[in-house]
């Protein structure tokens, strides 16, 4: 469990998408997400969907693994769909079912379908990023992208260091949590039975020792960092440098084509939403 946490969803493989620059992947993801929300008809969706499929193919991540990332959000999608099917209150041409103020109309069906598509594409796109990029690469990418914020004195380096330390300590703290749970169980602690409130209360004897030990760890880590000459970002060099490659260019170009296509399709057909 600790391992899967520390590496997020990362799927180890050597692929086109894996070896792209994390900054480019981040930027492309943001652009992709915006596009998914801009698309206004099914042709556009087909196009951006094709881009998604291309990304999945070139990431060499098994389709099933990618789809698994939907598990967490499936409930939300179903919930949204149901809510929209029955309670969407836009203009409509045809009514299928009417029951008091609850109506199922043609536009409510289309809208619900759009919402479902958008949400799933959002999740699938994001998971491609996390499946093909290690957290360390992501941190480096974010630090590099936020670099301009240094001009307004935003602590970019510190933020990146905090993220990287947090990632480093996930396995350590998750092991420790398990140890504390076992220790409390050995003393007769009960974490499985009772209602929500009873269970939340049962967490207290776990959280407090965890908090105390985290503070102790933080203090020791601070000493260790001082001893290793850490003194902020000033005068600091970087060992790893992110490098743009031809793949990043290809990624940009392909996405630009898709974006142009989507904009064209948006104009050419009637907006359904």
């Amino acid at each position: 469990m600790a391992k899967s946490l520390s590496f997020g969803q990362y799927y180890q493989a050597k692929s086109f998408v894996h070896s792209m620059d994390p900054r480019v992947k981040l930027l492309l993801l943001i652009a992709y997400l915006v596009t998914v929300f801009v698309v206004s008809n099914f042709f556009g969706f087909a196009l951006i969907g094709a881009f998604l499929v291309l990304a999945i193919i070139f990431s060499r991540v098994p389709v099933f693994t990618v789809l698994k990332s939907m598990k967490g959000i499936l409930f939300l999608i179903i919930f949204t769909v149901i809510l929209n099917v029955f309670f969407y209150s836009g203009e409509y041409d045809r009514v299928f079912i009417e029951w008091g103020s609850v109506r199922v109309t043609d536009s409510s069906l289309i809208f619900a379908a759009f919402m479902a598509l958008r949400l799933s594409m959002l999740v699938l796109g994001s998971s491609i990023l996390t499946l093909t990029t290690t957290p360390v690469e992501l941190t480096d990418g974010i630090e590099s992208l936020l670099y301009p914020l240094k001009l307004i004195k935003f602590p970019v380096h510190e933020l990146a260091l905090i993220m990287s330390i947090a990632l480093r300590f996930i396995p350590t703290l998750s092991d420790e949590t398990q140890r504390i749970i076992n220790a409390q169980k050995a003393r007769g602690g009960d974490f499985e039975s009772g209602g929500l409130i009873a269970r939340a209360k049962a967490m207290i004897p776990i959280l407090i020792p965890l908090l105390v030990s985290s503070f102790r760890r933080a203090e020791e880590l601070g000493d260790a960092m001082d001893a290793r000459c850490y003194s902020g970002s000033k005068g600091r060099t970087r060992y790893k440098r992110l490098k743009l490659g031809y793949r990043d260019g290809v990624g940009f170009v392909v996405f630009a084509i898709v974006l142009a296509g989507v904009i064209y399709l948006n104009g050419a057909f009637v907006a359904l939403v």
Binding site: M225, R228, R236, T237, R238, Y239, K240
Partner: peptide, 30 residues
């Protein structure tokens, strides 16, 4: 200085990145 608990003195997840932390701090070239 090396401390008692190895878990509380490493900054990065990957071994190599962690070893780079010190020299990065004192401004050594890549």
């Amino acid at each position: 200085m090396v401390f008692q608990n190895p878990d509380n003195q490493m900054v990065a997840t990957i071994v190599e990145d962690d070893i780079a932390f010190g020299p990065e701090n004192i401004g050594v070239s890549r």
